[in-house]
Nucleic acid binder design. Structure first.
Lengths: 169, 169
DNA sequence: AATTTTATGTCAGTCTTGTTGACTTTCCAA
DNA sequence: TTGGAAAGTCAACAAGACTGACATAAAATT
């Protein structure tokens, strides 16, 4: 029997690709995503905000001065949907919108001190769970986790993800 | 210096627990979940169904004869929310609801042939992406992926996940 | 200079999916 | 047998996504 090829008789064990294994992975994603959003959701209940607001705050903190269009591409929603969220965040003084210097059509978005405060609370809650999971699973598992997630993204989203290299404020 | 404990001076490298690494993981979850749902969503556009219908079909296929209450616990929504979804699936002949023999308050849920057909199309689309991601990342990465996801779940959801051991129909 | 394209914002209406509250039927136990 | 708990249903509402149409301003192109 040929042993060199990538077929089912290859040296690599392909049991992890059975439909049942894939189904397990699908269910793991489903249940884990619920945990992933649970802590910020609990905080947001105390405000008139939802997950959409959290996402906007996250990516504005991540890329201060980003334009509405950039944010649209990252979040993958319509401008009407994003606009509703941004309007409330701006009205409530969490986000500042500055007209572009070079291109006055653009609006550059920044967190105010108040906005940065809420963003920090939300992301700290989310990081706390992530940190516990990472610590439980260990560094090798974390590397695998990230590899699989990255391979699961739509190509366009993978580009967005990869271009967000530096996360430090 | 003490080297045995789990502190920052332990033999284990803890760089993977920095806030930036955690943030990367958070963003990976966000972008990957979009990919995860993209393919079934595209199929569902052709029907009057959404993600909620997909989830119901998935878990009914997984546990044929399950009750509404069981499904409620797994899906983590209110019974009213689930009921709307189930009603349309039953009306459209995708799901059959049988009154419990022992306890007539209960309804036992089953997929019809039609329901099994749609469930298969949806989950096959989802598995196709999962399979590609698993193949790209390799078995070690997949093991890590599952470990981290499992550690990320709420305890109650982890129990649900673990009790769904056998996925074969 | 006139025209087109781009970036943003807004209004109106729809859909999915979550919520709470009130209700019926059924079961079980005091 | 009566009263509470459990399972499920119906009605109304809210968040947050969507589409489509339209407005404005500025930039880019012709």
């Amino acid at each position: 029997m040929a042993e060199g090829g990538p077929g089912p008789s290859s040296g690599e064990n392909l049991l992890f690709l059975t439909d049942d294994q894939l189904r397990r992975g699908i269910e793991a994603m489903f249940f884990a995503y619920r945990g992933f959003t649970a802590d910020p959701d609990r905080i947001l209940e105390n405000y008139a905000y939802g997950r959409a607001h959290h996402r906007a705050l996250h990516f504005i903190r991540r890329s201060p001065g980003t334009t509405v269009n950039n944010l649209l591409a990252i979040l993958g929603v319509t401008k009407q949907s994003l606009n509703r969220v941004l309007r409330t965040l701006i009205e409530d003084g969490l986000v500042e919108s500055r007209v572009g210097r070079r291109d006055k059509r653009e609006r550059h978005l920044f967190l105010t001190a108040k906005g940065a405060g809420l963003e920090h609370d939300l992301s700290e809650a989310q990081r706390r769970r992530m940190r516990a999971a990472y610590r439980t699973a260990g560094p090798a598992a974390v590397a695998g986790f990230r590899q699989v997630l990255e391979a699961m993204m739509e190509p366009e989203m993978r580009r967005q993800y990869q271009s967000l290299k530096d996360g430090s404020a």
